[in-house]
Computed example of a mutant assay.
Amino acid sequence: MTMELISMAAEGAAAATGGVTGNLTMAIGGAGAALGVGMVGSKAVEAVGRNPGAFGNILTLGIIAMALAEGLGIIAYLGGF
Rank of each mutant, 00 (worst) to 15 (best):
M1T: 10
M1S: 13
T2R: 07
M3Q: 14
M3V: 14
S7H: 05
M8L: 12
M8H: 12
A9I: 09
E11A: 15
G12Y: 04
A13R: 00
A14R: 09
A14T: 13
A15M: 07
A16W: 04
A16K: 02
A16V: 07
T17H: 00
T17Y: 02
T17I: 08
G18W: 09
G18Y: 11
G19D: 02
V20G: 06
G22Y: 05
L24S: 10
L24Y: 09
L24Q: 03
T25Y: 03
I28A: 14
I28Q: 06
G29T: 09
G29E: 05
G30P: 01
G32D: 01
L35E: 07
G36I: 04
V37L: 06
M39A: 15
M39W: 09
M39P: 01
V40S: 09
G41L: 02
G41D: 03
G41R: 00
V45C: 04
E46H: 05
A47C: 02
A47E: 03
A47K: 01
A47M: 01
G49C: 05
G49T: 10
N51I: 01
P52N: 04
A54N: 11
F55R: 10
G56E: 11
N57D: 15
I58V: 15
T60E: 10
L61T: 14
G62D: 12
G62K: 06
G62Q: 15
G62A: 15
I64G: 05
I64L: 08
A65Y: 00
M66H: 04
M66L: 05
L68W: 07
E70M: 00
L72H: 03
I74Q: 10
A76H: 05
Y77G: 13
G79K: 06
F81M: 14
